[in-house]
């Protein structure tokens, strides 16, 4: 038993721990998700975060210790955002043909998501930096962090809000679309990519190829639009 504790103490202080914990938990969570026929509530990001977070809290392991290893996964978010250019380029003719619908819906949806979050948070009298960190919640985490930094929010909070937003969208989108009578896979995917960024898009991709394709377009368009519009908004009004 004592040996085990010593091994744990040693392992939990090396970067190996954070990296291994992230990958192993994700692989297990994804396998379970597939077994459960990809039920929305079985979302692998949610369960991975809960399991790893729970273990860290239970063992009193500080987050920076975990992040020392997890950062090797985290840095890939940058190239992943650059890679969003690929689905945009692949569907450039589609984009050209439907640019009015695509930019119109992306701008409307982005303003609706960010605006309602800021308004509600303001109504609840939350601290200014929390309100400002909520503005970019529908943008994929790494970009949300960049935007939050520019508009006076807290990057780490913005990232967490973005992840929760993505989870909420991925887990409840199906029911909301069914209720609204949205049957087109293209439209469902596009909405998920716009309002629930990467996590919503990942869900769309798992459900249907058309949904995934449009989610990919929405994700890239949303990243471009919100990086321009959110800082402009705060410069003018706040």
């Amino acid at each position: 038993m004592n040996d085990f504790v010593q091994l744990w103490v040693y392992l939990s202080t090396t970067p190996l721990f954070g990296l291994t914990a992230t990958l192993v938990t994700y692989v297990l969570a994804t396998t379970a998700y597939d077994r459960l026929i990809r039920a929305p509530w079985a979302n692998p990001v949610l369960w991975s975060v809960l399991c790893i977070g729970g273990v860290l809290l239970a063992t009193d392991t500080p987050y920076p210790t975990y992040f020392a290893g997890a950062q090797f996964v985290h840095v890939l978010l940058g190239p992943a955002v650059v890679a969003l250019g690929w689905p945009l380029w692949q569907r450039r003719f589609e984009l050209k043909r439907r640019w009015v619908a695509i930019t119109g819906a992306a701008v409307a949806g982005g303003i609706a998501a960010g605006g309602s979050a800021v308004a509600l948070a303001w109504a609840f009298d939350m601290p200014t930096e929390v309100v400002r960190s909520l503005a970019s919640k529908s943008v994929t985490a790494p970009v949300a962090m960049g935007i939050a930094e520019r508009v006076g929010g807290v990057p780490a909070l913005a990232a967490v809000f973005a992840v929760i937003t993505g989870l909420v969208g991925a887990m409840s989108g199906k029911y909301l679309f069914d209720w609204l009578g949205i049957t087109s896979w293209a439209v469902r995917g596009f909405a998920l990519g716009t309002a629930a960024h990467g996590i919503g898009a990942a869900r769309a991709l798992q459900v249907h190829t058309d949904a995934g394709a449009y989610a990919g377009i929405a994700l890239g368009v949303q990243v471009l639009l919100s990086s321009i519009l959110i800082p402009l908004f705060f410069r003018w009004f706040a």
């Binding site: 975060v49 996964v73 985490a141 993505g166 990467g198 996590i199």
Partner: peptide
């Protein structure tokens, strides 16, 4: 893409 969100997601424990 989902995998890449886990490290920041776990960051919720710092808040």
């Amino acid at each position: 893409l989902s995998l890449l969100f886990i490290p920041v997601g776990v960051g919720v424990i710092t808040h």
